[in-house]
Nucleic acid binder design. Structure first.
Lengths: 121, 121
DNA sequence: TTCAGACATAGAAAAGTTTCGATGTCTAGC
DNA sequence: GCTAGACATCGAAACTTTTCTATGTCTGAA
């Protein structure tokens, strides 16, 4: 029998993330556009946006799959699939502790994106 | 015979745009997520990102379809299709002057998006 | 070692997206 | 009015995404 997920210490994650090609000042290259589109695509889904919002607002800034499945009304494999996309894009980290996988936001990811979008000419 | 597109005065566009549900402070609703995903989806394509970048960096802050087609290596209907998506999302305005359709960035659209993404808890 | 449960992966169906060629519409010049 | 040209729309082909059910893997308790 497995009991309810206990809250444990979460390791600090090193910040990284390439960033900051100004979008509006000069035409970006095809490969810059592909990179940025990849990040935006990961976010451009209502379920994934709600996952980002729910995880960020969750106590401790992290949540496991079992805490995310029910409120979204989708099956566990579907939620796992969306979480994987968010991790691949560098938006979430995944930390497996015991039987549970804890997902947490990489704060710099969204900030870098916001910076690219709002940096003017 | 139609000569090359002459630069004409562009009317100032009134700023608007609904905005600013904090994404990270508390879980957003399904309908907020759908709205935000719609905006992100419009941007989450390499061709459309390059269109945004090219138009913003273009002289006068606007460009017509004929100026955008060749550098992207796609056909005119395909570029028109992408431009339509950007207009529908409120990212571009379309101003038909004579035979040409001039597209321009709505600056507040990207700024609103950046604000939603970077507003912390 | 065995079992229950949390999560991931695989494969398939349905739906959505991107792109094209063909064609329609509208403007400006003749 | 007629024509050329800029742009939009249509319909179809190819591809990608979303979601499911079924199944696999791994951890911790007994």
């Amino acid at each position: 029998m497995i009991t309810s997920p206990a809250r444990q210490a979460r390791p600090l994650l090193p910040l990284d993330e390439a960033c900051c090609t100004p979008l509006l000042r000069e035409p970006i290259t095809a490969s810059q556009a592909a990179d940025l589109a990849g990040l935006l695509k990961a976010l451009a889904d209502p379920i994934r946006l709600r996952l980002v919002s729910m995880v960020a607002a969750h106590e401790g800034g992290e949540a496991c799959v079992c805490e995310l499945t029910e409120p979204l009304g989708l099956t566990q494999p579907t939620i796992s699939h969306h979480l994987k996309i968010l991790v691949s894009a560098g938006i979430f980290t995944r930390d497996k502790r015991g039987v549970w996988a804890y997902y947490a936001l990489v704060p710099s990811a969204l900030q870098a994106l916001a910076a690219v979008l709002s940096a003017d000419r």
